[in-house]
Design a protein around this nucleic acid. Sequence first.
RNA 1: UCCUCGGUAGCUCAAUUGGCAGAGCAAGCGGCUGUUAACCGCAAGGUUGGAGGUUCGAGUCCUCCCCGAGGAGCCA
Length: 454
Amino acid sequence: MSPITGSYTASVRIENIARYDGQEVIIQGWLQLKTGKGKLQFLRVRDGSGIIQAVVFKGNVSAEAFEAARRLPLESSLIVTGVARADQRAPGFPGGYELDVRDLEVVQESAEYPIGPKEHGVEFLMDNRHLWLRSTRQWAILRVRATIIKAIRDWLDDNGFTLVDTPILTPAAAEGTTTLFQTDYHGMPAFLAQTGQLYNEANIFAVGKTYCFGPTFRAEKSKTRRHLQEFWMVEPEIAFCTLEQLLEIEEQYVSYIVQTTLRKRAVELAALERDTSTLAKVVPPFPRISYDDAVTRINAAAAAGVTVPPNDEPLPALPWGEDFGAPHETFVASLFDKPVFVHHYPSQVKAFYMESEPGRPEVCRSCDLLAPEGYGEIVGGSERMSDPDLLLAAIDRHHLPREAYAWYVDLRRYGSVPHSGFGLGVERTVAWLCGIDHIRETVPFPRLLNRLYP
RNA sequence: UCCUCGGUAGCUCAAUUGGCAGAGCAAGCGGCUGUUAACCGCAAGGUUGGAGGUUCGAGUCCUCCCCGAGGAGCCA
């Protein structure tokens, strides 16, 4: 142990409290909640790793310490010394233990804390997002998010993928479909990246299997529980990979992320009251259904008057060739108890660079992965066009400027290979695994249509 | 951009047909040795989002504006 760590190491992390049963420990943290009964005060203390109840009995501590415990405002910072002991009545996470307090030092007495132990409205909580993060639910989500991100990186790093970063400032619309945030680049227009995929396609020719992972930006005027203006996405890209091979990679990948999170964040998922039984089923293989078959089943169900959550509205019919709406995604996902692959979408609803299916030019070698329980599309992927002439024709067909894509077409002239890739949205994955209904809680400081503060 | 709903105490909400603007929680004071968003008592807390209009009288009705929420489109 380093000699300069000093008193820092003297404190115990609440998540490890079970190791110290019967011992005197020091906890450094904040007062999350308080209740009391005369000479007995119950302080719920959190330290970032967990939440524990500290019990202060007047007869066990100095008069000053007891008065502090009795009067201390919520969110005051404090250092508590006490004996860890098992108690079934003790609330908290991981729970099962409480602290029999012997001393209490106030680091700072908090000002009146705006967020109380009661219901609050969305606007108020979002205005106080910098404080809301301290609440149990938000804390648990942050911990799950961090674990999901680590799993996202670990699996790729351990399976031959090389991280190659892609630019955030880009010269033109990468896919030419969605609205981009524009900024000034020394007098030239520049745009915040909406994907790193095109650059990934260059990078696979250097490293074979690559991924980029970072924030991405969409300036669409979307106000729904599934959309952010700024969100994080991991985009793997693989050389010598067909659509069929891609799906096998995706189901291995997603299963690893889910199972790792279940194993490492059981306490946090319990704090979120997440029913993990459906998540436990997320293991390969995932069911596969073609767009054609999905449309058939949607229209049969629509004709039969099937309704879909969350509002139990009738499932609308879907003419072949149109993209799924939210109710269609929910319905198709509800047919299975695992994530489901929907493959071979109509080319007209997908990006220009997707490879056509041989013999069926109207559909492309694409695939979306729909999460169960109505969480919708969390992965979108495809096999990419590998022929330079067909790619140029697609660029023209979509009225995209050839000059901007010259380098991209170039990739198909020097040792072109079949290749595929996908993008996985971090926030939608977090929402799914945490079982929360709005994406704004899956990122510490969400960027929403009408919110840039805090 | 369009559709729907909303804005009253620090917070969550109520206020009958247009007739004295009220509760709970938080904050303050007092009490309580097993509380889980404790409980009991006392006291305090208001430019009803903004502007204009109708009326003897507007939180309530009308017009415009601002802000927020949910959804559609689009997407991860």
